[in-house]
Design a protein around this nucleic acid. Sequence first.
DNA 1: GGGTCAACCAAGCAAGCGCTAGTGTAAATG
DNA 2: CATTTACACTAGCGCTTGCTTGGTTGACCC
Lengths: 191, 191
Amino acid sequence: MNVMNDSPRRKELTRQAAQLFVQEGFDRTTVRMLAQEMGIKSGSLFHHFRDKQEILAAVIEEGTQNALVIARAALEQCDNSAEARLQAMARAHLETLLTDRNAHVVALYEWRRLDPEARNHLSHLRDAYEALWEAVIDEALAAGLIHGDRFLVARFVMGALNWTVRWYDPAGPRSPDDLAHELVAMITHRA
Amino acid sequence: MNVMNDSPRRKELTRQAAQLFVQEGFDRTTVRMLAQEMGIKSGSLFHHFRDKQEILAAVIEEGTQNALVIARAALEQCDNSAEARLQAMARAHLETLLTDRNAHVVALYEWRRLDPEARNHLSHLRDAYEALWEAVIDEALAAGLIHGDRFLVARFVMGALNWTVRWYDPAGPRSPDDLAHELVAMITHRA
DNA sequence: GGGTCAACCAAGCAAGCGCTAGTGTAAATG
DNA sequence: CATTTACACTAGCGCTTGCTTGGTTGACCC
């Protein structure tokens, strides 16, 4: 019933929605629960979002955009060596997974709840992010740092990293930097 | 309204439920949809299962039990070398992911929909499976085949493998055996 | 040939769902 | 000062949900 702007108000509501979606899952989260968390009534919610689906899309878009920004920044300000770039990407990935944890968990678990339109839009964003990864993997392959099939290595590495949302405890003894180091050490073949 | 037996009828119903849960997700799958898929009326469903939750638990239990059986068989009939055992586990993991794909996708995506009781029971099963992995990783570490932290390596490897359900196409050119080979090659450090 | 039992059905209840309609109001805008 | 805009409210419609109730069927058993 209104514009789909990106006001700071809407950003804050999106953040709160992400939290609830993680706790309850998208389908079990009712618009009444969302409204209560936001401190408004359920009807008022539809002033900010066209429907429930749009809230989900907003959550995922926010997380993916941030991942892109962080990864690009990390690649710009690191050494040129293939190993440094590989590590920078892994570290940036883990950092995003941590700081925007809710949004990324939602993206991983609730992707299929998106309607085709939103899914199409968001998969372009995700492709842009994955292209960064593939470029870095290509450099590492060319440098002889890792071996194997470009496609498979990229999938395996992203799988290992994304899986951390299921077990990693940020309050534990290991930092994201430690994890990135260990992963790179695990897959690189040096003398 | 009846016993929680494991009749062949119930096994078949469980298999069909798994398929629907993958297609639609647990929350969006209604008991009426399940009943229709099974060729019975929605009320009759509660003759076989106490409630909807129990169907979910049955699906996941079935998949995890099979994974255990397959992994144990693979370890028994492979060479004793650390590398052969690592590869046997990876291959068995991918095979299970393929043959019981529906059950495992449900386990990955809908785990949090389990009630605490079922979750507790099933996490013991899962722990038994992961213990197999940790033993094999330990052997590989002791043999100098891989380096790093036991806990982290195990998590990374399982993450890489489990992630395959999101992209692997069994109709494609690569066999599960190829994937297992590539993964082991990626993480082992040989001369 | 009466009794048992798993398997199934028709009907429906109470609760909850996403979303709409219409209204109020304080601040920004002309 | 008059109007628009942004944001919130109340009330509730039309529909779906998981699950229950009470009863029927047909195969098997002593």
